[in-house]
């Protein structure tokens, strides 16, 4: 029943998914970019600088979502010792760090023309920086500690503790006075972003998610090959 979860079966599927994403990626990217940069209207107040949001917001979402995945997998891995979960969280982490950094950098590029400053130590931005720090620590422990079991334990604890930061980031704009604006897209209730701007935002999100999937699958494949290579010696 759990045949599908065997690495060798997953491996065949990874190849297919990678090929599928590769075949549609550039067409989608072109559509998303043309909507984000040309066809979507400027904002009534921010003008064209609103277009930075089409990268900034999906990047921040991906940063948060992948840390949530890593934390949950790490908790399960810490308790039940599932080797596969370790491989998955290890393969997600670099993408998450990259997109968190992209969110921070594009945010400060947006902040300069709109707020009038590149950086503000407000709750949202600071907690996002702390998220990047947790990613960094997570990756660093796995790189630096050579004893795999020990590295696994410590990085799992780091991810679990860092998980507390996720709701803080989400609600920082509501709990405290921040320079950062509150969320425009709400899970419940009406969003305060017009449909003509929501569309390119979701398109860009789709493109970046596909990119993440591509990188994740390639990294995961690398990890599987690495393990199989070690097994080869024992065969």
């Amino acid at each position: 029943m759990f045949n599908f979860f065997y690495n060798s079966n997953i491996f065949i599927w990874i190849e297919r998914v990678i090929n599928f994403i590769n075949s549609i990626f550039f067409a989608l990217l072109l559509v998303a970019l043309s909507f984000a940069l040309i066809f979507s209207p400027p904002d009534y107040l921010q003008g064209d600088s609103v277009r930075i949001m089409y990268i900034h917001v999906p990047a921040a979402w991906i940063g948060l979502a992948s840390f949530t995945c890593i934390a949950l997998l790490s908790i399960l891995n810490f308790i039940f010792k599932v080797k596969n979960f370790k491989l998955i969280s290890k393969s997600i982490a670099p993408i998450g760090l990259m997109f968190t950094c992209i969110a921070l950098v594009t945010g400060s590029i947006w902040g300069q023309p709109t707020w009038g400053t590149f950086w503000a130590w407000d709750a949202r931005i600071t907690s996002m920086l702390i998220l990047a720090l947790f990613y960094f620590l997570f990756i660093l422990t796995q790189k630096l500690i050579s004893d795999e079991d020990k590295a696994n334990k410590i990085s799992s604890i780091i991810a679990a503790v860092g998980f507390i930061n996720i709701p803080i980031i989400k609600y920082s704009v509501e709990w405290w006075n921040t320079l950062h604006q509150p969320a425009s897209i709400k899970i419940t209730g009406t969003s305060t972003i017009h449909a003509s701007m929501l569309m390119p935002l979701l398109l860009m999100f789709l493109v970046l998610i596909l990119y993440c999937a591509l990188i994740f699958l390639m990294k995961y494949k690398t990890e599987i090959i690495r393990i199989k290579k070690n097994n080869l010696k024992r065969l």
């Binding site: 609103v50 709109t114 707020w115 320079l179 604006q181 509150p182 425009s184 305060t192 972003i193 017009h194």
Partner: peptide
Amino acid sequence: LAKHDENYMP
């Protein structure tokens, strides 16, 4: 510093 609100529209 200008504080922007959460409304985006054309």
